[in-house]
Computed example of a mutant assay.
Amino acid sequence: MTLFLTQIGFSQTIDKFVDSTIKVDSLNVPTDFKQPYFPKEMFPEVSTDWIKENDSTYSIKTKVIEGTYDEFVANWYSKHLHAMEEPLLFNRKIDKEIYRFTWLRTFDKPMTFRIEKKNDRFILYWKVLNGAGGYEPGEIEIERLKILTEKDWTEFTQLIIEADFWNMDLGRNSIGTDGSEWIMEGVNQTDYRVVSVWSPSKGNFYNACNYLISLTNLKISEKDKY
């Protein structure tokens, strides 16, 4: 079962989130394990109502609760990014453009794919943990990087445009049982955004995330791309 959520809008301007008081190391990795990886405004709580239909079946109506914070979701995602020793993307202004796809499958190894552009240099970093996305993250099992071409970057950003990433609903726009969380962050000199889609199997957002997977040497079967 999938629940689709009605979102409310929040400003995505990076100035709103910059916070020099957050303690980080030289790579901008938070030193406090309790530090969330996302601004609180990005993950409001969701209310759920079961509606009885005329044929005695039930449908689910959900909506975002304005001014709240889904601490469980933010902590769940953040726990895995802490284990990956990933940098924060929202707390400081940068002179580059970054997208990070974090892939949390319930029963499979957590992964993250971070693509960066600075001037005419393009790099993809990916990490794999030995835990499970719906349970404990475990420890880093694979950590690699790859120098990309401008063509690689252009093809990826075209997919981002086709997905309309910068106008997608903020935070978590659908939920379900088991499955997987596909979390995409983007940040540049002026803006920051994060969205989470539950178990996509096709479409422009799926294509953008899957393209990052395809740039690595990871061997992942199609049936495991849930």
Rank of each mutant, 00 (worst) to 15 (best):
M1G: 12
F4N: 14
L5G: 00
T6M: 07
Q7T: 06
G9Q: 13
F10H: 15
F10K: 03
F10V: 13
T13M: 03
T13P: 00
I14P: 01
D19Y: 08
D19C: 10
T21S: 15
I22N: 07
D25M: 08
D25P: 05
T31E: 12
Y37S: 00
P39Q: 09
K40C: 03
M42R: 00
F43E: 03
F43H: 03
P44T: 09
P44A: 01
T48D: 05
E53C: 08
S56M: 13
I60M: 14
I60G: 07
K63D: 12
K63N: 15
G67K: 03
D70C: 05
D70I: 05
E71N: 11
F72I: 11
V73W: 07
A74I: 05
N75W: 01
Y77H: 12
L81A: 02
M84L: 11
L89C: 10
L89F: 10
R92M: 11
K93V: 02
K93E: 02
D95S: 09
E97R: 13
T102Q: 04
R105T: 09
R105C: 04
F107A: 10
P110Q: 13
P110W: 13
M111L: 13
K117A: 09
K118H: 08
D120E: 11
R121Q: 12
I123E: 11
K127W: 07
V128H: 01
L129E: 09
N130S: 14
N130I: 11
G133N: 02
G134N: 00
Y135Q: 04
P137F: 02
G138I: 05
I140Q: 05
E143Q: 14
R144I: 04
L148Q: 09
T149P: 05
T149G: 10
F156T: 04
T157A: 00
I160V: 14
I160E: 08
E162P: 00
E162V: 04
A163P: 03
F165C: 04
W166R: 06
M168Q: 14
D169A: 13
L170D: 06
G171I: 04
S174L: 04
I175P: 00
G176T: 12
T177M: 10
T177W: 14
G179S: 09
E181S: 13
W182E: 06
M184D: 03
D191V: 13
P200I: 08
P200G: 10
N204K: 14
A208P: 06
C209R: 03
I213T: 01
T216I: 07
N217K: 11
N217Y: 06
L218Y: 01
I220V: 15
S221Q: 09
E222Y: 01
K225P: 03
